[in-house]
Design a protein around this nucleic acid. Structure first.
Length: 583
RNA sequence: CGGGGAGUGGCGCAGUCUGGUAGCGCGCCAGUUUUGGGAACUGGAUGUCGCAGGUUCGAAUCCUGUCUCCCCGACCA
């Protein structure tokens, strides 16, 4: 207990709110857009130091540690081995992989005093591959999965949303090494399973979705998406089977059957100033589904192409890039459209256009549709491919949306927004080949290691948890992530009976191994309630004179708001039990 | 990088157009009364008005430059 003039090293001393460092904010900082950022700032978890760079204050750090520990336990259980690589790495390694050139400005580069180039590590394939090639020579040492939990730096063009998209952030990154493809697949599946367990343990609602493997060209990849309306990614999942994919990747089933034979002649109608599909369709008394829109695009090689889509569909640019084998594509500007079609934007069509024309696969079953006429203020009706114009190919080019048929079963797709908290990636030999990471197999043959890499955004996971678990009063932590499991609120710490009873409970809970914060501040109860709600600690025990008269504490659950009276005798044991049940 | 907005006490903001020596709310400190959902009153502290130049008798305010932050877009293993 507190003795005046002496240095107190009492157990749990720092878990007294009055002595803790927990600067909460009544008002929302002006630069916080999304709720997780607002609440993290208000709850004294983080403070901004620079754009995308944050302090983790004690309360926030406790949550980070919770996520990290769950990640570590499941990684270890899956056979991965923890190490720690440097945050700074020499350009030399990046030259070997070719990424010193490939990586854009996101890679923060600088020179040391000897004018040697270095960078802050945005990821560690090079570094880990260098470790392995220098130490692993035999197939007997394989498979190997090395991971770390480390601060990464990516100089994002536009950091935003607090920990959701920072430049400096904590990431768990793991790298697997196998002697062949089959082995790499096993490693991949192990990580996939471990990730499922991790996010389940975090109490999050998520989907593991197929993702576009992007420019890396790996064979497959899954993203783990926490479902949240504020998520930066759009995903679809089947309501019947376990198919789920990022819309960037989501395949669509080819339309069945054949286009009905043309039944209408090609006609031309004046559509003055009607540029959007919806306007033209309404004018023609047709639905957008009976219209075809023509998008004129240009890629980084300055190739132009026209894409035909059903009027109500959206283009998936990634599918188009994959088809064209290019990196970027964008809508052509007004001048280019005029050059290729002879008309301003809004009237483009495939007939008479001077560039390649491809169509979404849905077009294959359409006939007698409306089109732009490539002439200002005119559209065509009764158009038919084959008869009126040719297309180079019918390709799956549109973006999946809710209600589409599942490509794997007879179910329907549902659409969600998601926050990407994890990504598992089969890398193949991209790095091992360039950096000569090889081992000898049992035949004495040199084999290039097959790699996988697996990331989890630790801070982002915490932020996603808040996006998914909050109300108008603040955060509602899932028990496994809660920085404190219980808060004991002394309604009037100046009342000696209240103080004594609260201290006793606090001590008993500590003894029971519960993480408990004792709100012993000399504040009005209302303030403490508001702070407790903001902080989101799952269980609150109100200790007040009123309850003590009945030999009881009051237990209040953060999520439901439900209050129950708890007899003092055995209270700590019951609370501890409730905490354990929720872990 | 393109477009837009903003830098004034710890936080949220007003004041800038029309130059006259800085203000409000919250928070903070002291005291009194309070004490089951962000108390009331009294008194108090805290600002090189982002930075650097310039104009002027005088600059938060006008001019020039510069830095930072935010939003939209582009971009993003």
């Amino acid at each position: 207990m507190v003795t005046k003039g002496a240095i107190i090293l009492s157990r749990g001393y720092q878990m007294r709110y009055s002595q803790y460092f927990l600067p909460t904010l009544k008002e929302t900082p002006g630069d916080a857009e999304v709720v997780s950022h607002q609440l993290m700032a208000r709850a004294g978890m983080i403070r901004k130091v620079a754009a995308g760079i944050y302090d983790y204050l004690p309360f926030g750090l406790r949550v980070i540690r919770k996520v990290e520990n769950i990640v570590r336990e499941e990684m270890n259980r899956a056979g991965a081995i923890e190490l720690l690589m440097p945050a700074v790495s020499p350009a030399e390694l990046w030259h070997q992989s070719g990424r010193w050139q490939e990586y854009g400005k996101e890679l923060l580069r600088f020179k040391d005093r000897k004018e040697t180039d270095f960078c802050m590590g945005p990821t560690h394939e090079e570094v880990v591959t260098e470790i392995v090639r220098g130490t692993v020579r035999s197939y007997r040492q394989i498979p190997l999965n090395l991971y770390q939990v480390q601060t990464k730096f990516r100089d994002e063009i536009r950091p935003r949303f607090g920990l959701m998209r920072g430049r400096e952030f904590i990431m768990k990154d793991a790298y697997s090494f196998d002697i062949d493809d089959a082995g790499a697949d096993v490693s991949y599946r192990k990580m996939y399973q471990a990730y499922r367990l991790i996010f389940e343990r975090c109490g999050l609602e998520f989907r593991a979705v197929e993702a576009d493997s992007g420019t890396i060209g790996g064979s497959f990849s899954h993203e783990f998406m926490v479902l949240a309306d504020t998520g930066e990614d759009a995903i679809v999942s089947c309501n019947s089977c376990d198919y789920a994919a990022n819309v960037e990747k989501a395949e669509l089933r080819p339309a069945v059957g054949q286009a009905p034979a043309p039944g209408m002649p090609l006609g031309k109608v004046a559509t003055p100033n009607l540029k959007s599909i919806d306007d033209v369709a309404a004018f023609l008394k047709e639905t957008p589904q009976k219209m075809v829109k023509t998008l004129v695009l240009q890629n980084e090689r300055e190739e132009t192409i026209a894409v035909l889509l059903r009027g109500d569909r959206k283009l998936n640019e990634i599918k188009l890039c994959n088809y064209l084998d290019c990196k970027h594509i964008q809508l052509a500007d007004e001048a280019l459209v005029r050059k290729l079609t002879g008309a301003p934007t809004g009237f483009s069509g495939p007939i008479g256009i001077s560039c390649r024309v491809i169509a979404d696969q849905d077009l294959a079953v359409m006939s007698d549709f409306g089109l732009g006429a490539n002439e200002e203020n005119f559209h065509l009706t009764g158009a038919n491919h084959g008869r009126d114009f040719q297309v180079e190919a019918f390709v799956d080019l549109r973006e999946a949306e809710a209600g589409d048929e599942c490509p794997r079963c007879s179910g329907k797709l549902e659409a969600w927004r998601g926050i990407e908290v994890g990504h598992v990636f089969k890398l193949g030999t991209k790095y091992s080949e360039k950096m000569h990471a090889t081992v000898l197999d049992d035949q004495g043959q040199e084999r290039i290691l097959v790699m996988g890499c697996y990331g989890i955004g630790v801070g982002r996971t915490a932020a996603a948890a808040i996006e998914q678990n909050h109300d108008e009063n603040g955060i509602i932590w899932p028990m496994p992530l809660a920085p404190f499991q219980v808060i004991v609120t002394l309604l009037n710490p100046n009342d000696e009976a209240v103080l004594a009873a609260g201290e006793a409970l606090y001590t008993q809970l500590l003894d029971a191994g519960i993480e408990v914060l004792l709100d012993d501040r000399d504040e009005r109860p209302g303030s403490k309630f508001k702070d407790a709600d903001l902080l989101g600690i799952p269980l609150r025990i109100n200790v007040g004179a009123r309850g003590l008269k009945e030999q009881s504490f009051e237990l209040q659950e953060r999520r439901s708001g439900e209050r129950t009276m708890l007899p003092i005798a055995g209270a700590a044991a019951r609370i501890a039990e409730q905490v354990r049940a929720a872990l």
